[in-house]
Deep mutational scan, measured.
Amino acid sequence: TTVHVNGVTYHFPNPEEAKKFVDRVVKEAGLTVEVKGNQWDVE
């Protein structure tokens, strides 16, 4: 699973890890998340 955060790419072994990361980032920074298949874009 690939997560893009403001142009930076993070790779995770599974969607659960990616979701935990995204949830944390979104809570801390108040960002928006767009999910496209296995790819997350966070802005």
Rank of each mutant, 00 (worst) to 15 (best):
K19M: 11
T1L: 11
L31E: 07
K27G: 09
H11W: 15
V33A: 09
E34S: 13
V8R: 12
V5E: 01
V35T: 07
Y10E: 00
N38D: 14
A29L: 15
V5N: 01
G7T: 01
V26I: 13
K36S: 15
V22E: 02
L31I: 12
V8I: 11
D23L: 08
A29I: 10
T9M: 11
V3P: 00
G37L: 12
K27Q: 08
V26Y: 13
K20P: 01
A18S: 01
V8M: 09
V5P: 00
V5H: 07
E28L: 11
A18L: 04
Y10P: 00
V26H: 07
W40Y: 10
P15F: 13
G30V: 05
F12I: 01
A29C: 15
E17T: 04
T32S: 10
W40M: 07
P15T: 10
E34H: 12
N6H: 05
D23Y: 04
T32D: 09
R24K: 11
G7A: 02
H4G: 03
E34W: 02
V25Q: 04
P13R: 10
T1P: 03
Y10S: 01
V22A: 05
E43Q: 12
H4F: 14
E17H: 02
G7Y: 02
H4E: 08
K19Y: 06
A29E: 10
E16M: 08
L31H: 09
P13D: 13
H4W: 14
K20S: 07
V25H: 05
E34V: 14
V3K: 00
T32P: 06
T32V: 12
N38M: 05
F21S: 00
A18C: 05
E28A: 08
D23P: 01
E34K: 09
T9L: 10
F21P: 00
V42D: 10
E16K: 04
D23H: 04
A29D: 08
G37Q: 08
E28P: 07
F12L: 01
K27W: 10
E43R: 11
T2G: 01
E34Y: 04
E28V: 09
V22W: 13
V5I: 13
V35S: 04
T32A: 11
L31N: 08
G37I: 12
P13A: 13
V33G: 09
E34L: 06
V42S: 10
V8D: 03
Q39I: 13
F12Q: 00
D41S: 09
H4A: 08
T9C: 15
G30E: 05
N6Q: 05
T32Q: 10
F21A: 00
P13F: 06
K19C: 13
